[in-house]
């Protein structure tokens, strides 16, 4: 009897689902030919959870990849660039200039320059959402940024919060795990409720977790708890945005843009709809970096030293 009990436990442990997992991806614009381009630049955004690489041909988006960040930044950067150049059918030697950004930006071995993710996100959002974009929200895996920029995509006001997990993708992963709901389903399920609940009152993820468990015990459905959590996250992010001042047009980048549960609630509180884009919201930083690279290479020419891998 004892043995079988152990066996059951082991099997359950082996099947433990990782509810926070998301899919890696790569994309290329099949209508373009990179061989026609004068300047090919790349941007690498090494984030805490995901890393993106973007290839830009003469200032036009050509291809990108979005991969999980590994245990160190150099390998994560190599992994991301490898995925995109394979998809694009080129080699690293074909790229004239590489800009690194994100939390691991100084550890991109083949980059010619490092630029902060704040400047890169503004530049990328300006490209993806148009020059009317003034307010940008970037919610990443371990941080949250609120940026105000001008018509050229130059930053005029910004703040960043990477101290606290509340209001970051990580905070969302914690609740996905707690509720045992795959992260991509959280948003849709948060709208599948009879009535919209008030936000979870705790800001701190640790306390919000106990609060969520308490609500489940009190008989709330999982969906309702998730709704209360999404609302709390939206309220918190809006408070950050208000510190820099919200002005039309509004654009959301980063992984959280893919969670309608938070996005629609932010829009509801702000009474302002975010500009939609056909591109993957997570590439904004890397795209901005590649565009910075394009400006630099036009000004300074192709650097003598080829990008080393």
């Amino acid at each position: 009897m004892t043995t079988s009990a152990f066996a059951t436990t082991a099997a359950t442990a082996g099947e433990k689902k990782e509810y926070w997992r998301w899919e890696e991806s790569a994309w290329v614009d099949e209508t373009m030919n990179w061989r026609d381009a004068k300047f090919i630049t790349a941007g690498i955004d090494v984030g805490s959870v995901s890393s993106q690489a973007v290839v830009v041909c003469d200032g036009k988006l050509f291809g990108y990849s979005s991969m999980r960040t590994g245990s160190n930044s150099p390998d994560s950067a190599r992994n991301a660039i490898k995925a995109v150049i394979e998809k694009c059918g080129m080699t690293l030697d074909n790229i004239h200039f590489v800009v690194g950004t994100g939390y691991g930006r100084v550890n991109v071995p083949f980059a010619h320059k490092a630029i902060t993710e704040i400047a890169c996100h503004a530049r990328g959002a300006n490209f993806m959402g148009g020059s009317a974009i003034r307010t940008i929200l970037d919610m990443g895996g371990q941080d949250c940024k609120a940026i105000h920029c001008d018509e050229k995509g130059k930053v005029t006001n910004f703040l960043m919060n990477d101290k606290c997990a509340a209001g970051t993708g990580r905070g969302m992963e914690v609740i996905a795990d707690l509720m045992q709901i795959p992260i991509a389903e959280l948003g849709p399920r948060s709208f599948d409720v009879d009535e919209e609940p008030a936000a979870v009152s705790s800001v701190c993820v640790v306390f919000a977790k106990s609060e969520a468990l308490g609500l489940l015990k009190a008989g709330w459905s999982k969906n309702k708890v998730v709704a209360a959590y999404c609302q709390a996250m939206a309220e918190r992010v809006v408070a950050l945005l208000e510190r820099i001042g919200v002005e039309k047009e509004f654009f959301i980048t980063g992984g959280i843009a893919k969670n309608p549960g938070v996005v629609r609630r932010i829009e509801r509180i702000l009474k302002l709809e975010a500009v939609k884009t056909k591109y993957d919201s997570q590439i904004a930083g890397a795209l901005g970096a590649a565009l910075f690279g394009y400006t630099l290479v036009q000004k300074q020419g192709v650097p003598a030293k080829a990008a080393a891998s």
């Binding site: 006001n157 910004f158 703040l159 960043m160 919060n161 990477d162 101290k163 606290c164 701190c204 408070a239």
Partner: peptide, 11 residues
Amino acid sequence: MIANYGYKDGS
């Protein structure tokens, strides 16, 4: 540019 350094947490 206005650069805001710091954070918001539960406190």
